[in-house]
Design a protein around this nucleic acid. Structure first.
Lengths: 187, 187
DNA sequence: TCGGATTCGTTGATTATTCAACAAAATCAG
DNA sequence: CTGATTTTGTTGAATAATCAACGAATCCGA
């Protein structure tokens, strides 16, 4: 990819997220985004259909990154769930502004829903209904856990990460072990 | 000016100054600058002849800005020397990284010399040889004062601005008043 | 509701930047 | 000193971004 494209997209994204932190989505204009990104307004349209598309693409890009952070490229080295969890928290830490802004902005319930969907998907893949879970209703259990996971992440991010990522990983591990979720990637 | 030009120059300048803070000027390559600036190497050559020209232009640009910070556009509002001094210190504060890097880098004595030249010029313009200065040798006096001014600025910048700009302005004013330098712009 | 202002979406010509490649010069290591 | 590697300076074709402008749509205030 030509580096100009990436530079332009990065600038637009950063400007957009900055504005999202300051005002409602509906009040943001393409003009403002372009000015803050220091690109021509027409350039925004070269990359995005409209600001709704921009929002969608921003969400998509970040959720892909989040997903990648949970799935180490090298699965041959035997990464434990704890290591990938740490990757995830570190990724969230580095992109805290985006996630915090998205979760705080009342105009975007879809974002939180997408996080929930990711958590549900991950949990469904790795929930083990034997042992202590064998008398549970699976759907109830995964809804319970997904809500808890997303809720804690949301709290951690929107409260400016009150504890280090390493601490969060330890706590998560302890909590998830209670439900026999230990080895595979969660989100 | 097309905004692309400014964006490119800003990126190159920032990358260059960052590298200057990490290594000797002679060890810096155009490749490194381009990579860090995230521009094509050829683009560096579109704007600068070589890295020596880049250095010259960086110095020139910043010294022009420094000069402008001492010369308020609106002279009709009766700015006092103290106000323009404050502008100067605020400017230096905002560009501390550049000035600190240049002053610390042993490969660039020219930079400090340029500062001295500016101080000498300003002082020669406004030194008042009557009164307490009447028995002094003018050249000795301006060399003395210029060295003192540049030395203090250098210390303040390279020691991460230990005192607020406002304090520095007060001190400068007190010091310069001892030499009957009060009203006009200094640097 | 109406008129003015603002924003949006688009177009076309121009321009700055990109990329790949080449040869020359400089640097580095044995 | 010599050969390999790196850096420099340059070239040309392609591409992304710029700018100005236009008409349509939307918003805002009287």
């Amino acid at each position: 990819m030509d580096r100009r494209i990436q530079k332009t997209k990065d600038a637009i994204t950063e400007a957009f997220v900055g504005l999202m932190a300051e005002k409602d989505f509906e009040q943001i204009t393409i003009n403002e985004i372009a000015d803050r990104a220091n690109v021509n307004r027409g350039t925004v349209y070269l990359h995005y259909v409209d600001k709704y598309d921009l929002l969608d693409q921003c969400i998509e890009t970040h959720l892909n990154q989040l997903f990648q952070s949970c799935s180490p490229a090298e699965d041959t080295t035997g990464f434990s769930s704890k290591t990938s969890l740490l990757h995830t928290f570190e990724y969230l830490e580095q992109n805290a502004f985006f996630y915090s802004t998205m979760l705080k902005n009342k105009g975007i319930p879809a974002f939180r829903n997408r996080l929930m969907a990711m958590a549900l998907h991950g949990l469904r893949e790795q929930i083990d209904m034997s042992g202590i879970n064998q008398n549970m209703n699976q759907e109830v259990l995964v809804q319970f856990l997904a809500s808890a996971v997303v809720g804690v992440l949301e709290w951690w991010i929107t409260h400016s990460m009150p504890y280090p990522a390493t601490d969060m990983v330890e706590q998560f591990k302890l909590l998830l072990e209670r439900f026999q979720i230990v080895r595979k990637e969660l989100v």
